[in-house]
């Protein structure tokens, strides 16, 4: 039942096409977000009461929202918020996670199992419930979102980093280095961290899409950035109430969000296959 050689090649080519499309889409979006003030003439906050919930026309290429604001501008500016929150949250989660995972593996042999048990409980917590409670009390804001999401996802990185640190330390060349007198910090810097780079990269790509979805969900519920600043989840949450007047506006941020998450997942899969073929199941 092994695939024929040529179908394997065809498969690889097809999957590369998907990866290329995903990467292009993400790159395009990132470029658009960065250069938004130059490229987008419309003001995302400018209200026009006489032109609300409009389908696309020449002035508003993606139509307008419930207050007559330009949807193209709002989607692009909303993307800046969504992408920045997700990226910063991943950075926080990754840094905290790698530091604590490696630290647990190296510096607390007695506490090891207790610490990892705590991490296991943290990983199994349903993130969104914790996030709702915390944000309802902190009040939703850009920084509150980043902090909350970042802290919520750090245990996953800690678990991965801990596992990697343990397995790398057991390798023969590391044992050899230790017997030659290598210190723990030297080991971590020269052996452990470089060797776990790829695993952490894969984890980061998946966490990025989780963080994005969590941000969108929280903003959808009204716990994210404050209006009038747009974010995709918040736009969907507001525009869904007008679906029976004109279904178009709510579809714009929905489809963009979906396309971005899909692209990230495709890239994450590819990264997984490329960097850690032994983990592929």
């Amino acid at each position: 039942m092994a695939p024929q050689p040529q179908t394997t090649v065809a498969r690889v080519r097809r999957s590369n096409a998907a990866v290329l499309t995903a990467a292009t889409a993400l790159g395009f979006l990132a470029a658009l977000s960065v250069s938004a003030p130059i490229l987008i003439a419309a003001d995302p906050l400018a209200i026009n009461p006489s032109h609300v919930l409009a389908s696309p026309d020449l002035v508003h290429p993606l139509g307008t929202d419930e207050l007559g604001r330009d949807l193209l501008a709002r989607v692009v500016y909303g993307g800046r918020v969504s992408l920045t929150v997700a990226a910063a949250a991943v950075l926080i989660a990754g840094t905290l996670g790698v530091i604590s995972g490696v630290a647990i593996a190296f510096f607390s042999p007695r506490l090891e199992s207790a610490m990892m048990r705590i991490i296991d409980v943290l990983v199994s917590l349903p993130e969104i419930f914790v996030a709702i409670v915390v944000l309802a009390f902190l009040g939703g804001s850009f920084w509150a979102l980043i902090g909350t999401i970042g802290v919520l996802y750090f245990p996953q990185f800690a678990r991965v980093a801990y596992g990697m640190a343990r397995s790398i330390r057991a390798r023969d060349h590391v044992t050899a280095a230790v017997s030659l007198g290598a210190g723990r910090l030297w080991l971590i810097r020269r052996e452990i961290l470089p060797n776990m780079r790829s695993v952490i990269a894969v984890q980061a790509s998946f966490t990025f899409s989780f963080a994005m979805l969590l941000e969108a969900g929280l903003s959808f519920l009204g716990l994210g950035v404050h209006p009038p600043t747009p974010s995709w989840g918040q736009m969907i949450g507001t525009l869904k109430d007008y679906i029976f007047i004109n279904p178009w506006p709510v579809l714009v941020p929905s489809i963009v969000l979906f396309a971005v998450v899909l692209s990230i997942n495709v890239l994450g899969d590819w990264l997984q296959d490329r960097l850690n073929p032994e983990l592929r199941r």
């Binding site: 899409s209 979805l213 969108a216 989840g233 969907i236 679906i243 709510v250 969000l257 979906f258 899909l262």
Partner: peptide, 18 residues
Amino acid sequence: AIAGFSAPVFVSGIILVL
């Protein structure tokens, strides 16, 4: 499968309502 996996709940929900 990957599209279903990537679709946020509120996006699939909105499309279902539509």
